[in-house]
């Protein structure tokens, strides 16, 4: 049969199918990476003029220069805080919504369509429009709060990280909901029937059947969301700009260093430090997928 290893012709054919895509991926990932490493040992700036080797000075700046090391630490903390809060809220809310949407009812399909829309939209574009919604005086949110007799905080100046979280939760809760629904639908009905015969209390059914059987898919959802949230850039740019202390994520600091301050060499060094973290997360993710596949293989 064709497709068996060994014969040179088949191997050539196989590589001609997968080769072009792999070559492009390597060229556009490993090549910039290598160039990034080179740049990180230089004092190159954005103008593209002359540059010099500076050895490990950029890395020394990241880890020890007081002002930059503080900024770098703050950006890491902001990113971590944003990621943890966003993912936790989206998971809890998404899972709750999935539980509520579990049974079929009339109008479920159009309702799902409305709920799912935000995650398909552009964060940069919708972020801009959210600025109007969250505006302090004429923003619709505060006007509604005012009509309800509640206080009207200056969201965009005093609660910047909260604004970021709010928009992110609006956009990505449906993502968690979608995956949680898939998890719920995959639970065999017999388990619930058996629990009913045994008159198991509802909370026990939830704790012993629903939650554990949903957990692997929820884990996948959390990993997918977390890798995205760690890259958060678009909403920061739209809502506060890249250089606001309250919301400067790692990506925003990278942008600020490389493009606003034009320090390409320093930015490159910082990017390398970030990439070490990215590789760690990616490894964790692929291990998880592997584990899930093995688990499915055992069960099915």
């Amino acid at each position: 049969m064709a497709g068996m290893p060994g014969t040179g012709g088949t191997r050539m054919l196989a590589w001609s199918f997968v080769g072009p895509a792999l070559l492009l991926l390597i060229a556009f990932n490993l090549f910039p990476l290598a160039w990034n490493i080179v740049l990180s040992f230089t004092n190159a700036d954005l103008s593209g003029g002359t540059w010099e080797w500076v050895g490990g000075r950029n890395y020394a700046t990241i880890f020890s220069d007081k002002s930059f090391a503080a900024k770098y630490g703050a950006a890491l903390r902001t990113t971590a805080l944003f990621t943890v809060l966003a993912v936790a809220i989206e998971l809890a809310l998404g899972f709750a919504l999935a539980l509520a949407l579990r049974r079929d009812f009339r109008g479920k399909t159009p309702l799902l369509a409305v709920l799912l829309l935000p995650m398909m939209l552009s964060p940069a574009v919708m972020g801009l429009f959210w600025n109007l919604i969250l505006e302090g005086t004429y923003g619709p949110l505060n006007q509604i709060l005012g009509l309800a007799g509640l206080s009207q905080p200056a969201w965009r100046t005093e609660f910047k990280l909260l604004c970021l979280l709010l928009v992110d939760v609006w956009m990505w809760t449906p993502f968690m909901m979608l995956i949680a629904l898939a998890g719920l639908n995959a639970i065999p009905a017999q388990l619930y029937e058996a629990a009913e015969i045994d008159r198991t209390p509802a909370w026990r059914v939830f704790a012993r059947i629903t939650l554990p059987l949903c957990a692997p898919l929820l884990g996948l959802a959390v990993l997918l969301r977390a890798t995205d949230a760690l890259k958060q850039f678009d909403l920061v740019m739209a809502i506060t700009g890249p250089n606001d202390q309250a919301t400067q994520t790692v990506s925003a600091l990278l942008y600020q260093t490389t493009f606003a301050n034009q320090k390409v060499g320093l930015g490159a060094a910082y990017a390398i430090v970030v990439l070490v973290g990215v590789i760690a997360v990616a490894t964790l993710f692929t291990r998880y997928l592997d584990w899930m596949a093995a688990r499915q293989g055992r069960e099915g």
């Binding site: 497709g3 068996m4 290893p5 088949t10 054919l13 196989a14 590589w15 199918f17 997968v18 895509a21 792999l22 991926l25 556009f28 990932n29 090549f31 910039p32 990476l33 160039w35 990034n36 740049l39 890798t227 760690l230 890259k231 850039f233 790692v250 990506s251 990278l254 942008y255 490389t258 390409v264 930015g267 490159a268 990017a271 970030v274 990439l275 990215v278 590789i279 997360v281 990616a282 490894t283 993710f285 692929t286 997928l289």
Partner: peptide, 28 residues
Amino acid sequence: FRIAGAKDWLFFILSTRFMPPLAVVAPV
């Protein structure tokens, strides 16, 4: 086809998605 190291290649392909654009855009 049976491709040597197929699983590693597939994971490499997936991992490229984790790259934050801002971390590779300067050399690009």
